[in-house]
Design a protein around this nucleic acid. Structure first.
Length: 357
DNA sequence: AGGTTAAGCGCG
DNA sequence: AAAGCGCGCTTAACCT
């Protein structure tokens, strides 16, 4: 119930009316349906010139945490077990990932300090710890494997900081000379490549001109010609065959790659570039889950595999079994396939999921 | 009353 | 015309 003078902060339409009609704030961008957007990016921009957007952003962040996690998760605790039990869907995500629902435990907050307090609520019983093991840079490693690019393969073979190495190549400085800004830009480029990002996308993401963004991308492809080749070959193959596939042969069909409108086709091209990497990562962690479960059962220890979050496995481990699990878990994860670059898994231990991360 | 869509945002 | 992949969940608005 809203009292007089209050308004509903959760409604984009009402925000739009107040911000853009009453207060006459500039419309930064529009939603697909043509309404003025009030999303986070827009509010960040408006916050440079007006006080209200910042307050709204804080409210949005906190109400998201409350409505989705703090209010909901306690209600979903199973009375018999005293735990929350998610469901994993095995045939939903087109790339071969699992998805998680009721509740979704694959989007528990981690990026903000307030959000991490929710992660702290995931605890082990007395005498046990939470153990988390996640693949390091898995999709970039797969890109190195599929493309066979010499520089990228060397980065991983040498155990380098891959974003720093990329910055060093793009900006023509030695790795130790790479600035924080240069590394940040290189990281955006590395991730952007996995998603098929264009010069336009890179420019708007890091706040530079399209021409400057194009120069960075050109420079990247100059230094990593194998990656440029992969991008082109993947587009060609997708158009010729109508599908792309993971390293293990699971296919993603792309009916719109040759037909449809320009935007749909371009969307299909980005999906074609991303799917072999995202999908191969999904294949690898599925192999890991099988290997880990087989090991747990064969070795007759009490540790249990309790969650999967795309590139991460979470186990509940009695303290006595910690040394063994710490050692064996990453070995199993890294040993499920021999790619052209090493696989690396990082292990953490804690009293709760946040500590283990 | 109940279902669907749009917008937004949490994660990898 | 759009511009970065893949998901699930919440709220408000809209529809039957």
């Amino acid at each position: 119930m809203l009292a007089g003078g209050e308004f509903n902060l959760g409604s984009p339409k009402q925000i739009g009316q107040i911000f853009f009609e009453k207060l006459q704030l500039p419309v930064v961008k529009k939603t697909p349906s043509g309404a003025p957007s009030t999303d986070e990016e827009v509010l960040q921009k408006l916050a440079e010139d007006y006080p209200l957007p910042k307050i709204l952003l804080e409210h949005r962040g906190l109400s998201k945490l409350k409505s989705t996690y703090t209010d909901k998760l306690p209600r979903m605790v199973n009375a018999k077990t005293g735990r929350v039990h998610t469901n994993y869907a095995q045939a939903v995500a087109v790339t071969g990932r699992l998805s998680s629902n009721e509740p979704n435990l694959q989007n528990i907050p981690v990026r903000t300090a307030e959000g991490r307090r929710i992660r702290e609520a995931f605890i082990a019983p007395p005498g046990s710890k939470i153990v988390s093991a996640d693949y390091s840079q898995i999709e970039l490693r797969i890109m190195a494997h599929i493309s066979g690019d010499p520089s990228l393969m060397r980065s991983f073979a040498e155990g380098e900081d891959v974003h720093r190495a990329t910055a060093s190549e793009i900006f023509g400085v030695t790795p130790i000379e790479v600035s924080n800004d240069q590394r940040r830009i290189a990281k955006v480029i590395n991730f952007g490549l996995i998603y098929g990002m264009s010069a336009f996308g890179l420019a708007s993401n890091i706040g530079i001109s399209r021409d400057a963004a194009k120069l960075y991308i050109d420079r990247y492809f100059q230094r990593y010609p194998g990656v440029a080749n992969y991008m082109e070959e993947t587009r060609t193959k997708a158009k010729r065959d109508g599908f792309v596939e993971t390293v293990f042969g699971r296919r993603l069909w792309l009916p719109e790659i040759n037909g449809g409108s320009g935007p749909r086709r371009q969307g299909a091209e980005r999906a074609a570039i991303n799917a072999p990497m995202q999908g191969t990562a999904a294949d690898l962690i599925k192999l890991s889950m099988i290997a880990v479960q087989d090991w747990l059962e064969a070795s007759k220890i009490e540790s249990k595999m309790i969650m999967q979050v795309h590139d991460e496995l979470v186990l509940e481990v009695p303290e006595a079994e910690l040394p063994e699990v710490r050692k064996r878990l990453p070995e199993l994860m890294c040993g499920v396939a021999k790619l052209k670059v090493p696989l690396v898994a990082e292990v953490g231990v804690g009293n709760n999921w946040e500590e283990a991360h």
